[in-house]
């Protein structure tokens, strides 16, 4: 056993060149190289900061109506003007942003939790578990999402749920309807991973199922979960906006980007007072684009094949 020892001395010289770097660090480095994704990240951070901190700096209050100053165009006093009840649009856009972002994040968190768990169970245990979960997924996929959301929104209205509580139902509903795609992704990823030799090695080593799932399989699905969740947030924000626009999601007086655009429903507002609906519309556009850019960047950075290190 002398030879390996000699060998090591020589190896040491060479290996100093390679920095010990975890796969996550490599991914971060690659993400930082992607200009568009960085721009997206900066925009999203700015947007979140403005929405979270901005309202505290505003001289106005939520739902503070001021009929004398209604329908004002943007000015030094009201940066984005006021609406037909004299409320400051800027403040409402920022508060709406809080709500839209929260709805997006929480709804996605719900679908990720459901999707990842069910996908992992289906992929790992296969057989009956797989069949049952995937058939349920098929049913969910076959449901026409929008009509269901609209129906559920209408039911919420019928049940006279208080406007501020509607948000929680909304998050739950969007989350419950959005897990299928991720469940399928995770399942197929785990089915692929199972065939890898390192998973056969865990079987040969006689490792416990829990160790196989949580230490070997799940960490390898995290990249796709992250990417899918990021893009999911964008989708959830859009869904929320659509519902709120139709008056079935977040309902006034609670502001959301979606229900603020409703202003554009009336021809006068649409033509004469573009400041009432353009800012929330732009916010949706910018936020969703930024998130999608981040998602694409993450997908490239987390590419499991690790090419172009």
């Amino acid at each position: 056993m002398e030879q390996p020892q000699n060998r090591m001395e020589q190896l040491q010289e060479q290996l100093k060149i390679v920095k010990p770097e975890s796969p996550w660090k490599i991914a971060a480095r690659r993400f930082a190289k992607n200009k568009l994704a960085l721009v997206g990240l900066i925009i999203l951070v700015l947007m979140s900061l403005i929405c979270v901190i901005g309202p505290f700096l505003s001289p106005y209050e939520l739902n503070q109506t001021d009929v004398k100053n209604k329908n004002l165009a943007p000015s030094a006093e009201y940066w984005l003007g006021t609406d037909k009840l004299g409320r400051d649009i800027l403040l409402r856009v920022m508060l709406a942003g809080r709500i839209s972002l929260t709805v997006g994040l929480v709804a996605t968190a719900i679908s990720v939790a459901i999707g990842a768990t069910l996908g992992a169970v289906a992929g790992f245990y296969r057989r009956y578990a797989d069949t049952i979960i995937m058939r349920i997924a098929d049913v969910f996929l076959a449901l026409p999402t929008l009509p269901i959301l609209i129906t559920l929104g209408a039911i919420l209205s019928d049940l006279k749920v208080a406007p501020d509580q509607r948000i929680y139902f909304l998050m739950l509903i969007i989350g419950l309807l959005g897990w299928v795609g991720l469940a399928r992704l995770v399942r197929s990823q785990i089915l692929t991973l199972r065939e890898q030799e390192f998973m056969q090695a865990t079987e040969a080593l006689g490792l416990r199922d829990s160790r196989k799932i949580f230490l070997h399989l799940m960490p390898n699905t995290v990249p796709i979960i992250i990417v899918s969740a990021t893009l999911g947030v964008a989708g959830a924000i859009l869904t929320e906006s659509v519902l709120s626009f139709l008056g079935l999601g977040v309902v006034p007086p609670t502001p959301s980007w979606g229900n603020m655009i409703t202003a554009a429903n009336s021809l006068i507002e649409f033509r004469k007072r573009p400041w009432t609906w353009i800012p929330p519309g732009l916010c949706i556009l910018i936020t969703v684009t930024a998130i999608n850019l981040i998602g694409d960047g993450l997908r490239d950075a987390l590419d499991p094949k690790m090419k172009n290190r």
Binding site: Q200, A201, L215, P304
Partner: peptide, 16 residues
């Protein structure tokens, strides 16, 4: 009883 695999790339979990 143990096994040593052929492919030194796929036989190790890249994240461990």
């Amino acid at each position: 009883m143990q096994i040593v695999f052929q492919d030194p790339f796929s036989s190790l979990n890249p994240r461990i």
